[in-house]
């Protein structure tokens, strides 16, 4: 608990995961640690894969909190990270916004599936998320992000989420979504979300995309498969709610195989 500091602003907490291939076709976790509201647990994986669950994310982040999660799949590791529940951004007593930073790395010959549950932006909250992924050439990545604007029937809080993906040091995706009260004008208009309350992204990096990228297409009107300028594809989707968003993303992902 020594890295938890409750400065006047809020809680600072971090979690770290490092996965390595064990040389015998399995994956070990030499680093698996979290503090305060960020706990990490190894759960049963299948085959060569190690599966990790982020637990307890329901308790925040509140205004003023700063969470950092770092995960790296190295040396042929197969790592899959999920979360036990949705993350709920809530207003804090502190007027300052909250931050949630995710730093991911995937080495050559390794694979990372980053599949947390939704991020829900509750009324009055103010959260800035940054997700930055460094992928080596030859590595595989599946990353899912889902943002839900407000709990049922509730106005959303302020949410800014930036997603950056580098392959072999070269940036292939840099995009930021800003929504909620105080976001730049037009965020909920015909160019932005047009009243949709769930928005999500999948990033898929596969070495095979270098020679055979998936075709760009629209998937059931609310989603599009977008081959990026590199061996990667983005699926971007909007939906009225979290359930329909997940269905769209799952369907679009299945269509890549």
């Amino acid at each position: 608990m020594d890295r938890v500091r409750t400065a006047p602003g809020g809680v600072r907490a971090s979690a770290r995961v490092l996965a390595r291939g064990d040389g015998r076709g399995g994956t070990v976790l030499p680093v698996l640690e979290g503090d305060g509201p960020l706990a990490v647990r190894r759960t049963r994986g299948s085959g060569a894969e190690a599966r990790v669950m982020l637990v307890g994310a329901m308790s925040g982040p509140l205004g003023g909190d700063h969470f950092t999660v770092t995960a790296r799949a190295a040396d042929g590791a197969r790592l899959s990270v999920g979360s036990a529940a949705a993350t709920l951004a809530l207003p804090g007593q502190d007027k300052a916004g909250a931050r949630y930073d995710v730093r991911l790395g995937v080495d050559e010959d390794a694979e990372l599936n980053w599949l947390p549950e939704q991020l829900i932006s509750a009324d009055g909250s103010d959260l800035r998320v940054t997700t930055s992924v460094d992928v080596a050439s030859g590595a595989r990545l599946l990353l899912r992000e889902e943002q839900v604007l407000g709990r049922a029937g509730e106005e959303p809080g302020r949410l800014t989420s930036r997603l950056t993906v580098r392959i072999d040091g070269r940036c292939v995706l840099d995009q930021e979504l800003a929504c909620g009260p105080g976001a730049p004008g037009g965020w909920d208009g015909p160019a932005g979300l047009a009243g949709h309350r769930a928005v999500g992204q999948l990033v898929v990096v596969r070495p095979g995309f270098a020679t055979g990228p998936p075709a760009a297409r629209v998937f059931e009107e609310g989603a599009a498969v977008l081959p990026l300028a590199g061996p990667a594809a983005l699926v971007t989707a909007v939906a009225p709610d979290a359930l329909r968003l997940r269905r769209l993303l799952d369907g679009a992902l299945a269509s890549l195989d």
Binding site: T164, A191, T236
Partner: peptide, 17 residues
């Protein structure tokens, strides 16, 4: 890298449609 990256989901989806 300091360039902004703000995006509009329906512009991207609409462009492909």
């Amino acid at each position: 890298d300091v360039l902004p990256a703000r995006s509009a989901p329906l512009l991207e989806i609409g462009a492909e449609a």
